[in-house]
Simulated scan of single mutants.
Amino acid sequence: MNAPAWRIWLVAALMCGWAILAIRFGTRQEWPMVGLSVILLISNGVTLWRLTRHGK
């Protein structure tokens, strides 16, 4: 799949955001929110992998 560059950058930015939130919630020991953030981080990681696995 040839994904537009803006979509790849968007998903990468979302992954960074979810990672930051997971770390922040982890320091506050809010475990349900850490779990949700990690699940969404993994989901976006799979999406990014699917978008970039065939290259250009």
Results as ranks from 00 to 15, higher is better:
56 K>P: 06
50 R>W: 04
1 M>E: 07
55 G>V: 01
4 P>H: 03
28 R>Q: 14
54 H>C: 10
2 N>A: 07
44 N>K: 05
28 R>C: 03
14 L>A: 14
28 R>I: 14
10 L>W: 07
41 L>I: 06
41 L>R: 07
26 G>I: 06
33 M>C: 02
49 W>F: 08
37 S>E: 05
28 R>W: 13
47 T>M: 15
48 L>D: 03
24 R>D: 11
10 L>D: 05
15 M>H: 05
1 M>P: 04
51 L>P: 00
30 E>S: 15
26 G>D: 06
5 A>T: 01
19 A>E: 09
17 G>P: 01
14 L>K: 13
10 L>Q: 09
14 L>N: 15
38 V>R: 02
7 R>S: 02
33 M>K: 15
10 L>R: 08
38 V>I: 13
34 V>F: 02
18 W>S: 09
40 L>T: 05
28 R>H: 11
24 R>L: 14
19 A>H: 08
49 W>H: 02
12 A>H: 05
14 L>P: 09
56 K>D: 05
17 G>L: 07
18 W>Y: 15
16 C>R: 15
36 L>T: 08
30 E>M: 10
13 A>E: 13
37 S>M: 04
30 E>R: 13
55 G>W: 10
50 R>F: 02
25 F>P: 01
1 M>H: 04
45 G>E: 00
37 S>W: 04
41 L>T: 02
26 G>V: 11
50 R>H: 08
41 L>W: 13
48 L>Q: 01
42 I>P: 06
2 N>H: 08
43 S>R: 08
46 V>E: 02
3 A>V: 08
45 G>L: 03
43 S>L: 04
10 L>I: 09
12 A>P: 04
16 C>T: 14
